[in-house]
């Protein structure tokens, strides 16, 4: 790996992310380094995942995607690599805003710009200090002892809303904007396609099979919904009421 001080000082750190020991070489005070601060943890032994991107790769990506800053490039491609590695640890990332209430994490997933974060903000308004955002853009779901657990990670998108915690999955909901609030459970097909559409699909068959095995377990034990919602606390109360107690544990 080639690091120079052209891009700022590389710093080595030990982190525990989603319960996995991660060694990262990050450029000091860049986005990734700042967002990962809460995950610093001095574990013993070798890291299970190693993250670090050399200068040349960052330069290439920046050339390819000029609207991204160099720091963005480091942030995005360390995040993408982490997601790939996650499969080895029975985990995957879902493009969603994750809100926690009464010790369960509820995930709202949709394409960018639909209003995921807008909806979970309504939960904070409706349920006050008892609710918090676990990760506003890319929470990780891991299957641990047969139970789906949602984790915050440093890769939380444009906002830095994430918390270093693991919370049992309460439900998954695909949302769209609507003039009236409605919510309904979806079948296995819509649940699987919905999730596959909002995660990074592996490039090789072996890992795709592994992801589908994980989805099989998650969908069998979790309520999955589709919802149309207005921007209102009413919508938050509706989605909570429909999703609570739906965990088929």
């Amino acid at each position: 790996m080639n690091y120079t001080d052209v891009f700022g000082e590389p710093t080595r750190g030990k982190y525990v992310i989603a319960g996995i020991n991660v060694g990262m070489i990050l450029r000091k005070d860049w986005t990734t380094h700042q967002q990962a601060r809460d995950y610093l943890c001095d574990f013993d032994g070798e890291p299970q995942i190693v993250e670090g991107i050399d200068d040349e790769f960052i330069r290439e990506k920046h050339k390819e995607y000029p609207h991204l800053s160099l720091a963005d490039c480091e942030y995005m491609w360390t995040g993408a690599h982490f997601c790939e590695e996650l499969l080895k640890f029975d985990g995957f990332m879902l493009h969603a805003s994750a809100v926690v209430y009464k010790e369960r994490a509820y995930l709202f997933s949709a394409p960018s710009g639909t209003g995921k974060s807008t909806h979970t903000k309504q939960w904070l308004d409706a349920f006050g200090e008892d609710a918090y955002i676990l990760n506003d853009d890319k929470p990780v779901i891991r299957l641990l002892n047969g139970k789906a657990v949602v984790f915050g990670t440093p890769w939380s998108g444009k906002t830095d809303q994430n918390r270093n915690a693991g919370v049992l999955l309460g439900g998954i909901c695909f949302l769209e904007r609507a003039d009236e609030n409605w919510i309904k459970p979806v079948g296995a097909k819509d649940a699987a396609f919905g999730i596959l559409n909002q995660t990074i699909r592996p490039g090789d068959k072996k890992r795709l099979v592994k992801l589908l095995e994980l989805l099989d377990n998650v969908i069998k034990t979790t309520g999955v919904f589709r919802m149309g919602c207005t921007i209102s606390t009413d919508a938050a109360i509706m989605s909570y009421d429909a999703m609570k107690g739906e965990t088929r544990a």
């Binding site: 649940a191 396609f193 596959l196 490039g203 099989d216 069998k220």
Partner: peptide
């Protein structure tokens, strides 16, 4: 580059690799 897998009681065929561009 396609995979057949039973997910929650439903057989689905999903693409890996470049094929995954198309939902």
């Amino acid at each position: 580059d396609f995979v057949l897998k039973e997910v929650a009681g439903q057989w689905i065929v999903a693409p890996s690799g470049d094929a995954s561009i198309s939902f």
